[in-house]
């Protein structure tokens, strides 16, 4: 059994937002709808200040809060660990977004365009892929992965079978692979560099690991 996971190297992330935009473009997401958000934190007082970037996306928790909270069953967990939202089932209550400890979900409230009032061929074609009034979140590009696998490619190694954000990251800060395979790049990185997960104390068992900055 596979368990897909991502590793984020905080030492390498430079906050460029390439992951965010490439994901948006790939999935055809409208204004302010993001599946991965690179947040920024600043701590301390001048001149002893620490500033850092933390890419946040769905952690594909093994025990997902959202799954438990979702009343409709629109949120589902696949056998490979990927947590997805079935847009056809979602009623848009937003409980999942509130309970997610990682602010991984965005609600598509209305069909909003970057260029209000103006026609734009691209938006007209791409935004039909999503339903308004439903929840959006990272799905580890599962369609891409499934399709890649069906062509005999290995996720995390072949770009065609790897999430868009991972292959676009210009800091090479993102890795994807199978957590259950101790030899996979993600497993090895987590071991070698003391990978940790965010808010582990909540018991959500995220599948996204972070490598420390120092």
């Amino acid at each position: 059994m596979k368990r897909y996971a991502m590793v984020v190297d905080l030492k390498k992330c430079l906050g460029c937002q390439t992951c965010t935009i490439s994901c948006k473009l790939f999935h055809g997401l409208g204004p302010d709808i993001v599946r991965v958000k690179v947040i920024e934190q600043e701590e301390g007082e001048f001149p002893h200040v620490e500033r850092m970037f933390i890419p946040l996306r769905c952690m594909h928790c093994d025990d997902p809060e959202c799954l438990k909270a979702c009343p409709t069953g629109a949120t589902k967990k696949r056998t490979d660990g990927i947590v997805i939202v079935d847009q056809d089932e979602c009623m848009g209550c937003r409980y999942c977004a509130v309970v997610c400890p990682y602010q991984a979900r965005t609600f598509i409230a209305v069909d909003r365009r970057y260029f209000p009032g103006n026609g734009n061929l691209w938006e007209a074609k791409r935004y039909t892929e999503h339903q308004t009034g439903t929840m959006q979140k990272c799905d580890f590009c599962y369609k891409r992965i499934d399709e890649g696998i069906s062509r005999g490619l290995e996720p995390g190694i072949a770009p065609e079978a790897t999430p868009m954000c991972v292959i676009s990251c210009i800091g090479k800060a993102l890795y994807f692979g199978d957590l259950n395979d101790p030899e996979s790049k993600v497993s090895r990185l987590i071991k070698q560099r003391n990978g940790f997960r965010l808010k582990e104390e909540l018991g959500t068992e995220p599948s996204v690991y972070f490598l420390p900055r120092r």
């Binding site: 799954l67 438990k68 909270a69 979702c70 009343p71 409709t72 069953g73 629109a74 089932e89 979602c90 009623m91 848009g92 209550c93 937003r94 409980y95 609600f107 598509i108 409230a109 339903q131 308004t132 009034g133 439903t134 929840m135």
Partner: peptide, 25 residues
């Protein structure tokens, strides 16, 4: 009215096992 998709409100009963919204409903 608050729901994004109110016509699907009935789906909210699907997860009484764990969801407090389901239970609430």
């Amino acid at each position: 009215l608050y729901l994004g998709r109110m016509e699907r409100f009935w789906r909210g009963l699907a997860n009484i096992r764990t969801s407090w919204i389901s239970r609430g409903l």
